[in-house]
């Protein structure tokens, strides 16, 4: 039995006045990719935001390597090694590509280390190196997603929360992004992947949870979920 990186225990949260999470429990084992599926408004993004501290939990707990981080502030969670790449990438459009990456490494105290990590991201995404002096807003959608992931990798997090990395991207680019996620995972990063594109997500992940109106309605190994009739009907366009 491998170590559990992230555990949600009966997590509840409100998004404005909406009771968005009605008791979510899930586990992300260390070194694995786990996916969270569900349609629009099911509560996938809110789940990630509650983990990373952007949305306060109403009840329940979030545990990160056994440590209760439910009430921790968002900016403190980053330093623990948990990074959330939000939906829509949210790169700083008027800052340069390089500045975006540097800010990803804001918590690093050592300027040299920060420079080294920027280099490392450039090795991972050579296209970002070519564009390092351009402002983030001039990048294509796929490049912006690479920048968002690269920015998250600056602190070399233990766990990466990815919210819809395939959104709005052409199929070829989606494949490239998924290949990168796989590579990061094989290098040791644990991933909780939120996706609407269930086909892609289930190919990548070892385990999946299905979310409907703020509750987990199904979970299991990806291979099993791929064959489940209800999943095929609802999310795989079968």
């Amino acid at each position: 039995m491998s170590e559990i990186a992230l555990v949600l225990n009966n997590l509840e949260a409100y998004y404005g006045k909406i009771h968005a999470l009605k008791g979510i429990s899930l586990e992300v084992p260390q070194g694995k990719i786990v996916t969270l599926l569900g349609s629009n408004g099911a509560g996938k993004s809110t789940t990630l935001k509650t983990i990373s501290g952007l949305v306060p939990a109403a009840s329940g707990t979030v545990e990160f390597y056994g440590r209760n981080i439910t009430k921790e502030k968002a900016h403190n969670i980053v330093a623990l090694g948990l990074i959330h790449v939000p939906e829509g990438r949210r790169i700083f459009k008027d800052l340069t590509v390089r500045e975006n990456l540097e800010l990803g490494g804001f918590t690093l105290k050592d300027e040299k280390l920060r420079r080294k990590r920027v280099e490392h991201v450039f090795e991972l995404f050579p296209r970002l190196r070519e564009r390092q002096k351009q402002s983030g807003g001039t990048l294509s959608g796929g490049e912006q997603q690479m920048l968002a992931i690269g920015r998250a990798m600056m602190t070399e997090p233990k766990v990466l929360l990815l919210d819809e990395p395939s959104m709005g991207l052409a199929p070829l680019i989606v494949q490239e992004i998924m290949r990168i996620i796989q590579q990061l995972n094989s290098e040791g990063t644990t991933v909780l992947l939120v996706e609407q594109n269930a086909k892609v997500a289930l190919k990548l992940a070892a385990y999946g949870y299905v979310l409907e109106t703020g509750q987990i309605v199904m979970n299991g190994d990806s291979s099993r979920l791929r064959q489940d009739e209800r999943i095929v009907k609802a999310y795989l366009g079968g």
Partner: peptide
């Protein structure tokens, strides 16, 4: 400086800054 860059970034998107460990 990093704090200067953080100021410019907060002007654009404070929540994204929180996710980068910046104390907004």
């Amino acid at each position: 400086t990093m704090y200067g860059k953080a100021m410019r970034a907060i002007a654009l998107d404070p929540d994204a800054c929180r996710l980068m460990g910046i104390n907004v």
